[in-house]
Amino acid sequence: MYAVFKRELFSLLNSLMAYITIGVFLLASGLLLWFFPDTSILEYGYAELTGFFNLAPFLFMFLIPAITMRSFAEERREGTYVLLATRPLTDWQIILAKYLACFVLVLFALIPTLIYYYSVFKLGLPEGNIDTGAVIGSYIGLLLLGSSFVAVGIFASAVTKNQVIAFAIAVFICFIVYNGFDAMSKIFALQYLESMLIGLSVNEHYQSISRGVLDTRDLIYFITFILVFLAVTRQVIGGRKW
């Protein structure tokens, strides 16, 4: 499994697409956070990173599918997955190796954003006037959100050989699970299901963790979400191999 993980990670790091995607993510978040008047911290006037953590999930909807779209789709298109499947590895080991490699790349994309926290920490009046606990909670929430989107992206890549289609499927599913349930809960005919639909929304649990309070229900939700999509991926791959 480690060999597949290392190969997948080095493959991503050697890909120009990964650097372009991460660069676009950092550029977009930087512009939105510091330069655009409607979302700029400097215009907002408060020492907090709420704007970044509200915008990051929407950037993740495009960043993560762009990273994961090649996981299985490229291997199937080039025929190299047959060689991988014949090695003494279980389907779970292959899936987890690819999942962890993509998650590490997402982690690499997030590390440079710590400069935002340092900048706000220094710019605050007085210096250090920022809720560090809320920032830590928000980063934990963002990591859980990113890991969930990676699971969605791995699944989307497993169902098709076309990377563009895998990207589109992943973006669509990520949008639905993040915003779709909230929107459906506001439909008049579904208002009696409002509490259940909101409970299924990724956004609801992400916002809960971003307040700086780690609730076991939110952790269980994200772990279950990830396992469900990885299990479905396992069924897709296993069924195809059979």
Rank of each mutant, 00 (worst) to 15 (best):
N129D: 08
Y116V: 08
L42Q: 07
A151K: 00
W92Y: 14
L84C: 09
I41Y: 04
T50W: 13
V150K: 02
F103V: 06
F167H: 00
D38S: 14
A158Q: 02
I154T: 10
T90P: 11
I136H: 06
L107N: 07
T86H: 13
K122E: 05
I67A: 06
T90W: 12
R70A: 15
L59D: 01
G79P: 07
F72R: 03
Y178N: 03
L83W: 12
Y44K: 04
A168M: 15
S148E: 00
F72V: 09
S148C: 12
S157G: 08
Y81E: 14
F175S: 03
R70S: 15
G180R: 10
L123W: 08
A47G: 12
D38H: 09
P112S: 11
G180H: 05
Q163Y: 02
Y116G: 13
A66I: 10
I130T: 10
C102A: 15
T132E: 12
Y116D: 06
I95C: 10
I165E: 12
A109Y: 03
L107G: 09
V164P: 10
L107R: 12
A101N: 04
I140H: 05
T86V: 15
E74D: 15
W92E: 05
F155M: 00
G45W: 14
Y99F: 15
A97F: 14
F58A: 03
I176H: 11
F181Y: 14
T80P: 13
M69H: 01
F175P: 00
S138V: 04
I154H: 05
V159A: 05
A73K: 00
V106N: 02
T160F: 00
Y116C: 13
A156F: 06
T113F: 11
Y116P: 09
E48Y: 11
G51P: 03
T132L: 14
L125E: 09
L110D: 03
A168D: 13
T50D: 11
F181A: 13
R87T: 13
P65K: 07
L145V: 01
F155R: 01
A56N: 13
F167L: 07
F53E: 12
Y44N: 01
G180T: 02
V104P: 10
L100H: 06
V104R: 13
Y46S: 15
T160W: 00
A47E: 07
A168C: 11
C102D: 08
T86S: 15
P112M: 10
A97E: 09
A47Y: 09
G146W: 10
L105V: 15
V177Q: 02
F172H: 03
S157H: 06
S138P: 00
C174P: 05
M69P: 01
Y118T: 12
Y139A: 04
A101F: 01
E75D: 08
T39E: 01
D91C: 10
G180P: 09
V164L: 15
I173C: 00
A151C: 10
G45A: 13
S119G: 08
V150W: 00
F60E: 02
G79Q: 13
F103E: 00
G141S: 10
E74R: 02
G133W: 04
I165A: 04
I154G: 00
F53D: 04
I176A: 08
E127R: 14
F53V: 12
E43M: 07
L107E: 07
L100T: 08
I115C: 07
A156R: 02
L125Y: 01
L142Y: 04
